[in-house]
Amino acid sequence: MTMLYYIGRRVAAALLTLIAVSAVLLAASEVLPGDAASASLGITSTPEEVQALRDQLGLDRPLPVRYVEWMGGALRGDLGVSIMARRPVTEVVSAPLADTTLLVFLAAAVTVPLSVLIGVLGAVRRGRRLDRALTAGAVVTVSVPQFVMASLLVLVFSSTLHLLPAVSLAPVGGGPLDRPEILVLPVLALAGFATAWASRLVRAAVIDANAAPNVEAARLAGLPERVVVWRHVLPATVGPCVQAFAWLISGLFGGTAVVEQVFNYRGLSYVLVDAVRNHDTAVLEGVGLLLATIILVAFIIADVLALLANPKLRTATA
């Protein structure tokens, strides 16, 4: 009962957040109105033509009205029309969104176990040589811009060692999974950064949990170390770790925006960058709304998992 109440509250909070984010998204992406119509028609268009398209797109109506219509459409699976492609936004973005989600999913599948391993190792060997080396490696990896890391991976693994393709174009008529080797370097570039970042949070969570009063008490009471770790340390680390992994989803989607461009991987990055260049606002707003929803769902899932792992949270008032 309390648990359902808690989850319901989280979902309600997420919905409110989504409403706020989408309102800001619509307002922020349309500060330069009119450009959408004139950019789409090109410089040879007459003012009458631009006005006609503006009327057709409804660009002259007040923002709140358009916001309600936009959200209403989104609920029915209609995100408007891309003015460059002259096709529904959902049609334009669905395949690239699937390809980008594939990259994010694979990168997360590498990052989660690897960062847990590195984080726990660092925490167990805290302050020792291995921990310091891992820390230094993580700080350096996190600091290097992701497209720089990706370019250096291309240099080493493609143009020098000739092990992997530098360009990640899917075969004509097929998807990236038809040529899985094109996924290796993009996933590596994304997972390298993410692992360095997440392993720090895992390390901190394990160190915190290990120093908690209940763990100390369990040790002093003479419980076997195995029991202490499995019954007391581990449950307390699950919460912070799944929170970190929810952030990871957000960070990985952000990372794909640059990494895909390095490898010519035809995901959302090209859709987004082209939309900005052509002032194709409906595409940008649609992708923004989809990504915000995905990220918020990840946060809700993390909250629920944290709750399941730690019974103390169930009764907490937070």
């Binding site: 957040t17 706020a20 984010v21 998204l25 922020a28 992406s29 349309e30 500060v31 330069l32 450009d35 952030w247 957000s250 960070g251 989607f253 952000g254 990372g255 925006a257 640059v258 987004l272 960058v273 939309a275 900005v276 002032h279 606002t281 940008l284 923004g288 990504l291 915000a292 990220i295 918020l296 946060f299």
Partner: peptide, 20 residues
């Protein structure tokens, strides 16, 4: 918290579109 949850690169693209 709201701002921290959004990837900065997305904010970048949305505002570049909005403001030029």
């Amino acid at each position: 918290t709201l701002m921290l949850a959004v990837p900065p690169i997305l904010v970048l693209l949305v505002l570049l579109n909005g403001w030029g």
